[in-house]
Design a binder for these strands. Structure first.
Lengths: 341, 341
DNA sequence: CGATTTTGTGCAATCGATTGCAGCGATCTT
DNA sequence: AAGATCGCTGCAATCGATTGCACAAAATCG
């Protein structure tokens, strides 16, 4: 009855109990090296380990091997519905390869971001996934300088110094504008996202390109929202409505689109009767809002999975070329868009 | 120019460069032990470390100290909007205490849950936060047996063998039913959550209690949904509508409530004109659905923060009594409830 | 049957930081 | 002035697993 505070068995204890050397026990317990040990001996060791309730110490193993099987995941806001699916995709792909996620939630403050990444490095993460990239991201620079394999997800840089998994934001916005044009809209405004993010900039580019391609009026009818939030969307949408004579708004993001719903209502207009609105992302629940939001669907889950896979490849074979995976967005027609009156 | 693959400096290197012993460098670099070192020497060491770009190896430190400053966080589904805020609360509270989150997303399979927790233990987490607890949870049992400080969040067990942070689910549902009764509803149904979860069971209890307190009809007018999803909600709500003659439905969860919207529409009824519906959680966006959902608000962010704080306390002072924090839910009136016709 | 290869196990160094203990010189006490 | 105290630094053990190398025993070959 002296096991009140039982000291957990280590490899030495297992080896002693099985009557072999530490090193033999280590080999027997590791599937990758098990073939070096005689079958019966390995069996005995494994059984002894089980009986003693032996649990491998990943920390000690990491110290010796230099690999932590840990990946740092940096997101701008876990509470934002689009990052949930991304995170889940990352987590599941990593878990099935024996890696775990170290989660870091960061604000927009760059110094803070640096501090957090630094802390992840101290923990000797084998790699990093950043969902926070700006168009020219100093944090990414720091990761690369440190020689840590890094992958961007959702947002990317312009230059390709790191692997990235993104949606084709430009094409997505073109899809949105074409849809509006096909309904008969000729005067379309763009509720743009923050221009220092690739999503914001590329979707705006897509907007301009689509307007030109289709020979529509005023490729400059866009306003940049201060952030990807409903509140910022409402403010910017109000400005679009007051400054431009448009019948439709293509928003860079679903939250912005929902903000636009408010601005439209505030002016006594109705969607889609007076103003059509199309979003971007197809977040959970936007099919239930009123009117159900027409939007551009992005598979965030798959993006997360692909990012994890890319990172794992980068970890296995260091020095491999950066790769870019671009997923195809898709138009989801609901009820927030209709022909102009 | 031989620093192509520069070997990162360790403590020894810093000590050598500063002309002191490893141990002195260690003490100087650690704020908690810095006072043991002469001011000028400490300054020199810190400066040398900075110049060399020294980065402390948390793995090695963990091995020596036995503390990893890592907390395992187990959630049932990161993509579910309620867990985002919880996670953010946990992360921010932990981060400000120097701890990081190891994220594990698990399904309902118990063996898989055990495997994942086992893996977290191998990584020598200092504590665990489970958002997955069932009413009698074997996984929690395993954590407790292993002597790992563990805190439950959002869902709890009946017996108090571990600290927990939950909403007052019973009171929340009473709030919902009273609200309906105050509008004049007398025949109310309950769209219950899974009964093996504390949230599902307690909210149902609250429903029964409220019906009795208010002297209303049929405390048995409830159906259990198979899961907290819109689909399961739609199925169960359809059954309620076909089996009971009710004018209102109190749902155990917002997603279930949204499923009920569908079921109501499918029967050619309207909400709230024909059937009032109240949800639970106040998830993001439920204020934008049609009709805007009347629901019970729970501060998931704060729950996450409190859980982290409780865990930190448990880590600091092992063997302390389990504690339970119950947050007060609040009714949010929107447009899905109205007087019966 | 001797020589050679194969197979299996043990030995000991190693990863990098932390910390109890001892020792040294300087200051303080009586 | 001898002894006690204090502040600072160095020494060396330690955490637990992994792995290159050496070596012995067994198996194979000519």
């Amino acid at each position: 009855m002296t096991d009140l505070v039982r000291i957990p068995p280590n490899l030495q204890a297992v080896a002693d109990a099985a009557g072999v050397h530490r090193s033999t026990a280590s080999r027997a317990l590791n599937p990758a090296t098990r073939h070096l040990v005689a079958g019966d001996v390995a069996g005995r060791i494994i059984e002894t380990a089980r009986q003693l309730g032996y649990r491998r110490d990943a920390i000690a193993a990491s110290l010796r091997t230099g690999r932590s099987r840990l990946v740092g995941v940096v997101v701008p806001d876990i509470a934002n519905p689009v990052f949930g699916p991304i995170l889940r995709g990352i987590e599941s792909a990593l878990a099935s390869a024996g890696y775990s996620c170290l989660l870091a939630n960061v604000g927009r403050d760059e110094a803070e971001q640096m501090r957090l990444v630094e802390e992840l490095m101290e923990r000797r993460v084998d790699g990093l996934i950043l969902a926070t990239a700006r168009k020219d991201d100093p944090v990414l620079g720091a990761c690369l300088d440190a020689g840590t394999p890094t992958v961007l997800v959702n947002r990317a840089e312009e230059r390709e110094r790191a692997s990235a998994v993104v949606s084709d934001d430009r094409a997505g916005m073109i899809l949105a504008v074409r849809h509006l044009a096909s309904l008969g809209h000729r005067r379309i405004g763009h509720l743009a996202g923050p221009q220092d993010l690739s999503t914001g900039a590329l979707r705006r580019e897509g907007f301009v390109a689509a307007i030109r391609q289709l020979g529509l009026a005023d490729e400059n009818a866009w306003i940049e929202a201060a952030a990807y939030t409903r509140e910022a969307g409402e403010v910017a949408a109000a400005e679009i409505l007051s400054r431009f004579d448009v019948t439709a708004i293509a928003a860079a993001n679903d939250l912005l689109a929902l903000g636009a719903y408010r601005a439209v209502a505030a002016r006594g207009l109705r969607c889609p009767a007076d103003i059509s609105i199309v979003g971007h992302n197809d977040m959970p629940l936007v099919d239930m809002v009123e009117p159900p939001l027409t939007t551009i669907r992005i598979s965030h889950l798959r993006m997360g999975e692909e990012a994890a896979r890319l990172l794992l490849r980068g970890i296995e074979s260091p020095g491999s070329k950066p790769e870019r995976i671009v997923t195809e967005p898709e138009l989801v027609r609901r009820a927030s868009t209709a022909p102009p009156r």
